[in-house]
Design a protein around this nucleic acid. Structure first.
Lengths: 118, 118
DNA sequence: TTGACATATTCCTATATAGGAATACAATGC
DNA sequence: GCATTGTATTCCTATATAGGAATATGTCAA
């Protein structure tokens, strides 16, 4: 079997650095025409269109027709699943969670001590 | 050109669902032998070893020899780049940022009003 | 209609997988 | 040494790209 399709999920779609660049180019939430994006990411127009298609298929961007242009906009909500997944690991490196860890360790110790005690 | 190598960066390594499963199986920060992981993710042992190799090459897991076993442990810090990247978009869906948005919009409006006014 | 501009699609190819099967390598116990 | 257990690697194949080039589609203007 080959690798999962890029359109399989957001994670796969964003595994491609150029697509992340495109997302970055739309980061402010504004709309951008394809040519505008072409200039920002410095890639041939067909490639930009192809990457945008993938992003569209996983719902990371939305499109809107506007005369002869097509305006793309970031749909940030689509990134939430990824954020949720990695966030559950944030405690492994963030200092903010040091105190929480102490509490959890404490709970764990108590629970183990209680084990079968009831 | 084909897709970027899975070992190119953490994002590509984790684009594979099975590898995310493996990471999840190590989520508690503890060490696990390969066979233990094999049972958890219900995948043939060679595949698990191959996926672990990829994860090791991007630094998502660490290994340690222990007799005839090899103990793998999650290196959460390696997930930070991904977290940082998606987090910068969190404001696009999180209610927590609604108020911040108001402030930023306000600043923006003022700036635009000021534009060239000096 | 014709032309110019904006964007999408098609065809092609080299490449990197992921999975399966078989096997190699390593450490332990007898 | 030899069998056993635990893990990694190799060989094979089908498949999905990403990029390049050329071209198709769509829209506006004169």
């Amino acid at each position: 079997m080959a690798r999962a399709a890029t359109t399989a999920d957001t994670f796969n779609a964003l595994a491609e650095p150029r697509r992340r660049q495109l997302v970055d180019a739309l980061a402010d939430g504004g709309e951008r025409a394809v040519n505008e994006l072409v200039h920002r990411v410095e890639l041939p127009q067909p490639q930009v269109s192809k990457h945008l298609r993938v992003l569209r298929e996983v719902g990371v961007v939305d499109v809107r027709d506007h005369g002869r242009q097509r305006l793309y906009r970031l749909n940030g909500r689509a990134l939430k699943p990824i954020h949720d997944w990695v966030s559950s690991y944030e405690r492994l490196w963030s200092e903010r969670f040091d105190e929480l860890d102490l509490v959890l360790d404490d709970l764990k110790r108590k629970e183990e001590g209680d084990d079968g005690g009831e």
